[in-house]
Design a protein around this nucleic acid. Structure first.
Lengths: 223, 223
DNA sequence: TTTCGAACAATTGTCGACAATCGGAGTCAT
DNA sequence: ATGACTCCGATTGTCGACAATTGTTCGAAA
């Protein structure tokens, strides 16, 4: 469902996926230097494909390359995360607006049932991980797909998606926002069902602003 | 001023810039196959750096790569351009909203003077190319910089900027929108000066919607 | 004549080795 | 003791050659 295809294509693609996973999950610390020869050895490939993978990761903003000085894992400081959420707010807001007119009624119903499943899951598990779970990402991705905008799907699916997951791995302990998050999801689906683009965009933007406020407070508390 | 640095770094970066230029200006037709060996020969370098450049261009959505089948210049059809402008509307709208609170008064004044220069330029040249000129891009880029959002600057500066230029090269004949465009720019600067984020975002979004409508009509007329 | 298949040419994917560049250890002079 | 300079190790950047895959063309059989 999610664009997480392990992919069996070229070595460069494999390296790209494995590296992205290692970076997002924190296996590679932020700011850590990525040695080409060492990684090529570990992945059992030459440095050529690995360099292409690094170039790709650079495009996804997961690593930062400095000519003649190698590549380092990006550092997700407060400013970077803040910037990321502003971009997400703009893009997902637009996606939601478009989805309000492009999604089929059937798809919207399906989205509603997805939320029902989430609600059950929350009640069973005590509901501590919803806003961070893959379920939340699923909801957002379905709406992005509903926008029928290839560029948005690419940006939010392949690129930002990873950065956002990285963001969550970094601040995975705050999870008390699960109930209001589900509530907001329901409101968004309602707006979609009413075919109200303005409202749908506004609600999605508020939803993401709320998520950022929650994460932001968590970070503040830790210090 | 614009992020058009010819750059004297690695061969891969040089190839990336030269390729981007050739693609944007139409020297390489849309959908044209890009032969690695031939391009490496032309640029006087090996295939290694060139492959890295292609990876980079793929990230910028200027080329589309298919594993084991090579890279082709992207085709800017109607749907793609429409998607592009929706993304631009979202991102530049957000940039303008942020700029309304982050730009210094001095910077806003400077922006106003930039528009004065544009107005003079229009009157002198009969004003047929403003909306397509580099001057318009300059205005937009200054606002994006004013957002102080690194990610937005990257996205709109390095990546989308090229696609948009390509878009304009493709439809360079419609230029009767120059006066309303300048007028809208003035309104936007006013909103920035009044420190009104909501209004600034709304005006920028309308401005871009107008640009898309203009381009869209031109394309329709051609067929 | 059409279609299926196999060899072939062209192009992409990959590797190993060499050249260029950067960072740091060590040393010498002030 | 401190600063700068030099040399050396390590890492990145680049190239050429080889392997693998694809698309094509030619030919033979139905």
């Amino acid at each position: 469902m999610l664009p997480n295809t392990p992919q069996q294509g070229t070595l460069a693609d494999i390296a790209s996926h494995r590296l992205a996973h290692s970076i997002v999950t924190g296996e590679f610390a932020q700011g850590q230097k990525l040695n080409e020869a060492e990684l090529a050895e570990r992945f059992g490939m030459g440095r050529g494909p690995l360099r292409e993978a690094l170039r790709h990761l650079e495009g996804m903003r997961l690593v930062k390359r400095i000519p003649n000085a190698g590549a380092r894992v990006v550092v997700l400081d407060y400013k970077t995360m803040s910037d990321l959420y502003a971009v997400r707010e703009a893009l997902e807001g637009m996606a939601c607006r478009l989805a309000a007119t492009k999604m089929t009624t059937q798809e919207i119903d399906q989205l509603s049932r997805l939320l029902d499943a989430h609600e059950i899951q929350i009640k069973e598990e005590g509901g501590g991980v919803y806003a961070q779970s893959e379920g939340d990402l699923d909801f957002h991705y379905q709406i992005v797909r509903g926008s029928r905008n290839e560029m948005l799907m690419d940006m939010l699916g392949s690129e930002q998606y990873q950065l956002q997951r990285m963001c969550r791995f970094r601040t995975s302990r705050n999870a008390q926002r699960t109930y209001p998050a589900l509530q907001q999801h329901r409101q968004i689906v309602d707006a979609l069902a009413q075919r109200d683009p303005e409202l749908a965009e506004m609600l999605m933007r508020r939803h993401i602003q709320g998520a950022w406020r929650s994460i932001s407070e968590t970070i503040a508390k830790e210090e």
